[in-house]
Design a protein around this nucleic acid. Structure first.
Lengths: 119, 119
DNA sequence: CTATTAGATTGATATTCTTCTATTCATGTC
DNA sequence: GACATGAATAGAAGAATATCAATCTAATAG
């Protein structure tokens, strides 16, 4: 941030009175922690496949078997599994095992956090 | 997708009647294009700095000078410029030049797109 | 014209992400 | 027990990201 010449940097450019740069400063309303959490959720939704996954899971109120999700997308089973893990890590979905099958469902609170901030 | 043995894959595992995997298939409600657009917006919001930037810009209804934004974050000016560009590329903000200064403002439609889908 | 300033761009680096194949794990079936 | 199956994990390759220092551009001040 500091140059080699180390000026006192007082005068700077003269700004016209009433210039927005001279008006009271703006501050973020969400703190770093909240921002980090909200960004984590948004990031998890920031992939077309994951977004469609959430779309499917939300429309289908109950729990959906992974074996139904895999054929909906043009990616391999491990790749889809990876995406589901990302969503799980972000707290957006949770899963449940029943024998051989795994069922995923949306945790509405997480989606709600982001929705609340957006509105 | 296809193994070397190329089975007819008819029998598979016997699923109990009424098992979710045998129920009518679920489909995504948003098409690929919509999903790509929504994911693009979510991705742009998926960084703490960018999310806080949007927070500031939204709270401050008018246009905010970059010179006010830079000191709010612990990153260099080029880095912040990069984040602003990402938001601009995603259509979430737009900017306007006034002499030496650049002013950024939120495009509510873009944020609204995602908010609408989330609710 | 020269110096300064606000902001954008370039180029480099380290990290993270997406995707695949191959494998493992757990649970079924025979 | 031997084999099959659904899902998760490991490992690797390539693309994309975040960040910074340095530079460039356009506008203003003197």
């Amino acid at each position: 941030m500091s140059t080699a010449t180390e000026l006192p940097l007082s005068p700077k450019t003269k700004r016209p009175a009433g210039h927005p740069c001279c008006q009271p400063v703006v501050y973020p309303d969400v703190d770093r922690e909240q921002a980090a959490r909200l960004a984590e959720i948004a990031k998890a939704l920031g992939d077309p496949i994951r977004l469609q996954l959430i779309d499917v899971l939300r429309k289908h109120a109950g729990k959906v078997c992974v074996c139904e999700l895999v054929p909906l997308f043009d990616v391999s089973q491990p790749t889809l599994s990876h995406h589901l893990k990302k969503l799980r890590d972000a707290g957006i979905v949770d899963s449940e095992r029943q024998g051989l099958w795994a069922f995923y469902y949306v945790r509405p609170e997480a989606v709600g956090e982001l929705a609340a901030w957006l509105s």
